[in-house]
Amino acid sequence: MAELFIFFEQIYKILFLLIPVLVSVAMIVWLDRRVWAFVQKRRGPNVVGPFGLFQTLADALKYIFKEIIIPASSNKVIFILAPIVTMTLALIAWAVIPFSETFVLADINVGILYLFAVSSLGVYGIIMGGWASNSKYPFLGAIRSAAQMVSYEVSIGVIIINVLLCVGSLNLSDIVLAQKDLWFVIPLFPMFIIFFISALAETNRPPFDLPEAEAELVAGYQTEYSGMMYAMFWLGEYANILLMCAMGSILFLGGWLSPIDLFPFNVIPAPIWLILKILFLFILFALIKAIVPRYRYDQLMKLGWKIFLPFSLIYVVLTASFLMYFDLLPGN
């Protein structure tokens, strides 16, 4: 009986986390389109609901009632599985994100590795979708995307090592608490920039949206998808973007910590700070989408392997030597 109670308690906790995440994904799509419109001096979605806030819900409703078309020559099981994989992976990663010192669903020892592993699995949704469509454009998009995500994961991994050297633990709460005096964005500023750019590439955001480059590949791996399945790809993509923003704010911007530990700032509850930081990073994502042209594929690869990887490796050596020389290594 007690086990059953724990089971239902966990389900309640999971719903308490997932439903706000899904709602905020819907809001973030609206915000993305709004920012994009403001940069281009348009109004953006402003008709449905106050300020157009319910535009995404209206879009989702439209997608739900549209017919799902499954191509005759596709591999049907994998074709249907692909958006499900994308969506699931984007949502399960939220289990380890700490919103405050106590408010975290699973405070596991290897939290950052879990995040890294889940984000590296994200490539499967795209490969499966691209291959199962059995069509040229989706397949090209899937191959591009796989190469791109695998390459930029490498540099994200090295950047995480930089942060871990300063923390001495893989636990996300420990990583946040280690930034109590100094956010890592200050000593590791170059790494923050590289993390931000790699996150753009990892989530297939412009200027690195080559997997779905409409000028060359129609819509890349999403070409054959329609209705609800397309909407799931789309929601999964935005949930992933939010997750990358959360990861960035936990690794570099001090997670739930307030910027200064003084009166007006430290009354604001911890989760609000994390949400504000995620929003800040997301608005940067949206601005970059609006102002930067798309990269060419060879430039993208060159940037990942020949510039980011060596630079972040050198920075690992620098960080390690600095910590060693001034005897700042954590854990002793």
Binding site: I108, V110, L113, F116, A117, L121, I127, V150, E153, L170
Partner: peptide
């Protein structure tokens, strides 16, 4: 848990791709 996560990252995230 470390081995499990590394297994996911290395084998599933890179080798199987």
């Amino acid at each position: 848990e470390f081995l499990g996560m590394i297994m996911l990252i290395v084998y599933v995230g890179a080798v199987a791709v």
